[in-house]
Amino acid sequence: MILHSGDMDKAMAAFIVANGAAAKGMDVTIFATFWGLRLVRKGKPAKARLSRMNMGGMGAMMIRRMMRKGNVAPLEELIRDASELGVRMVACEMTMGLMGVKKEDLMPEFSEIGGVGTYLDAAREGNINLFV
């Protein structure tokens, strides 16, 4: 799947699906690009904003509190889990250059760097392809 969004709510959906698919034995590749690439920098998932009703960060804070109360795993934990379940995570090389993101800025789970061809080689093998 392509992770284009840097919004917490959308990235949550992406990593929940990725974890579920990996747990069901499917091969999963996440290609992080643009805002999604900026999101997977070290320390950023815990500070991500909401796509709606962010209210200057208040909304995101409220959702995080509700998630803790409801025992819903935070985004950063889902990213670690996905890595442990063997999800392949690729950082977009073009976005890294464009936005000045260095390899050491990225979460260690995004150890691979690639381009559109890397994504397509994985995508054409798959039956499910998502753009988040």
């Binding site: 974890n19 747990a23 025992n71 819903v72 795993a73 442990e84 063997g86």
Partner: peptide, 15 residues
């Protein structure tokens, strides 16, 4: 635990 953690933890243990 809430969705999808029970499934994730089960698969992590199985692996």
């Amino acid at each position: 635990m809430n969705c999808p953690k029970p499934l994730i933890e089960t698969r992590k243990a199985m692996r």
